[in-house]
Write a protein that binds this DNA or RNA. Sequence first.
DNA 1: CCTCCCTATGGGATCGATCCCACATCGGCG
DNA 2: CGCCGATGTGGGATCGATCCCATAGGGAGG
Lengths: 339, 339
Amino acid sequence: MTAEGVARRATIREVAEAAGVSRSTASRALTGHGYVAPQVRDRVRAVAHDLGYVPDATARHLRRQASQSIGVLLSDLNNPFYAGLAAGISQQARKRRYTMMLADDGGSSGLEAEAAETFVALRVAGVIVTPVSAELGAYLSRQRIPVVEVDRQFSAGACDAVLVDNGSAAQRVTQRLIEIGHRRIALVIDEMHWTTGRDRLAGYRSAFAAAGLPLDESLVVTAGWDVEAARVEIRALLTRPDPPTAVFAANNVLAEAAFRTAAELGLAVPGRLSLVSFDDVPWMSMVTPGVTAVRQDTVALGEAAVSQLMERIQSPLAPVRTVLLSASLVERGSTAPPS
Amino acid sequence: MTAEGVARRATIREVAEAAGVSRSTASRALTGHGYVAPQVRDRVRAVAHDLGYVPDATARHLRRQASQSIGVLLSDLNNPFYAGLAAGISQQARKRRYTMMLADDGGSSGLEAEAAETFVALRVAGVIVTPVSAELGAYLSRQRIPVVEVDRQFSAGACDAVLVDNGSAAQRVTQRLIEIGHRRIALVIDEMHWTTGRDRLAGYRSAFAAAGLPLDESLVVTAGWDVEAARVEIRALLTRPDPPTAVFAANNVLAEAAFRTAAELGLAVPGRLSLVSFDDVPWMSMVTPGVTAVRQDTVALGEAAVSQLMERIQSPLAPVRTVLLSASLVERGSTAPPS
DNA sequence: CCTCCCTATGGGATCGATCCCACATCGGCG
DNA sequence: CGCCGATGTGGGATCGATCCCATAGGGAGG
């Protein structure tokens, strides 16, 4: 009954004609801006409803020069960390009546550039990104599009960021391992130039420094992003003549690699090897023993990113801000004093 | 150097003026449609590049009455199944130069309606949805927007769908349990009105029928969507005087509930209880023993949905089609003959 | 009684890109 | 020499919604 069998979608002009008013009046009636007689307003709205009229967001955007959507660029939706981030952003964006254009690069900066241009073309109100370089931030700033970097920071001072306090969390978890008696604690990390890696490494170091203990630099292993390569590195680490008694994996992918490798080598956890992870994902609470992990609230992270972006859209000239969210330590069975 | 310190973003008019040509010529030079002298074309393109010109997709869309973006509505990004689906859709959409507007309802049909209207407002070229009712399909069809239902089907005959062959897969996995000697096989299912539930139930039944075995209807447990309620149901099932020797969980959330409940009750898997899951997610290969599961290729599912949507956009009047993808059975340690 | 303001409404321009159509130029051919 | 077609280019309308501005009617106050 509503808009049944209509060849084309109704426009505001058709609504206006059907209601016997001008486009201007119809617009005022529908948007609620400006003078309209109450009865005219109701009639126009009724007609619009009957015709199944839905205003064209593109046309509105073009005229108003302000869009109601944000661009979101994440690394990898198959990783629960980023998926949770997307979920948080999505919830919060919807609450604020924004739509979300989502893209995921596979950590590739070529796709990052492509996505950036798409966002500019769509004239999004702002962009949230887990960056892989400083380029996206610089490019979008030049195009006058607000950017919030989330999880990682590449453009400190140039654009807002919402991060987890990687340093303190890494220090805390390392300190915990030291407290229960570990001295040979390996850090398996993706890389050390991004803020995530750098800060987690720094936290790990400062735990040793605070405890006044020497640090065996050979226990810091850079495993990169390739899972297979990481497993080879970890296997080499665990089969050394002087193996670590605990492994601190700097992200969930590396924790998985460490967990599987320990199982393959028949190293009992936590009997022969303690394991902790930065980033808590579902499997860590499913396995026996559970894996002790630093829990980042991804949904809160996403929500904070949206909030920060909205503030930036409101006040383009406000000072740049970096928001730090704290992480919590979830202790499970994978940690015990060394034997 | 490029567009540095420009107050406003460059428009095609500014590019045209800077290149000393008309808007029309600039448009032809940039889009490649129509006659342009090669040297003029190159000059215009060079100028556009220097000005950091990015065409306004909204304006283009308004004029062409055809958008380059698709709407995607999924249930829950925190569930790896939907996240994988999103990843597949995203990849394939990018390949075809489409952008993706993503929304997730929490399985709520109120949000479904809201999202539908947003998609209409944005005049997306098409929509991919994991539906929770037939309403979205009906509404968008009335608005002449192509819809592809994915994973579940509510609008059979009215719009395209891309589904997993739930029936065969469920039959196969049930048959496998019967082969190794199980007779009391419980099916723990979310609900039975959606196609996913209905077809999985049907597959389960037909395995019994094919084997000429009677089916104890009391072993079919409808656990709904609430995780806590599901755990209560499963606990009741497993503590019956005549408990099942195997549990077939119809989705990954229920499998998690079953796995945890079995652990709480101290039921050895697979010694006392065999467990199989429909839907393979990461933790199932991390735990010991691994969980035997029906593996749905979520990425392929997402890609197929995009392909189907693109065909529909090309040929709006082609007959409606339902694409069925097969699933594979991944046998792990959670299944063994009953003791 | 006239002016002024308030309430309502309509006309037309505008946002940025596209594209139809008109027109201009030039070479070739009858 | 004139006409035609091929090659290029520019003007103006258009997509749909918004919003400034003009205008009209009516009531109140001087």
